[in-house]
């Protein structure tokens, strides 16, 4: 298991987890709609099409952002 930090909270995930697996785990526990968020890994936005190809490492910082639409 490795530790990743998601929105300032530490989560333990399997060592070979990709970003999509990690996000699905968090979405289940927090009722998060993955279709409406952007994800940054260590300060870099990861496009949705690359979530399954991006593997998490110990200490990764993952930030989730909801889109803001108001003007």
């Amino acid at each position: 298991m490795i530790n990743v930090v998601v929105n300032s909270q530490v989560h333990r995930v399997l060592e070979n987890s990709n970003l999509l697996m990690t996000l699905q785990l968090i979405a289940e526990s927090q009722s998060l709609d993955l279709s409406n968020i952007a994800v940054a890994l260590n300060q870099h936005v990861v496009p949705k099409s690359q979530w399954a190809e991006t593997f998490c490492q110990q200490g990764d910082q993952i930030d989730l952002f909801n889109a803001v639409a108001g003007g």
Partner: peptide
């Protein structure tokens, strides 16, 4: 750096001033 859709692709976001205040 991509476009807006590369970051946010959904059409269905309700987080605006009318619903959330500002």
């Amino acid at each position: 750096a991509g476009c807006y859709h590369c970051v946010f692709s959904s059409l269905d976001i309700q987080q605006n001033c009318q619903s959330m205040g500002v």
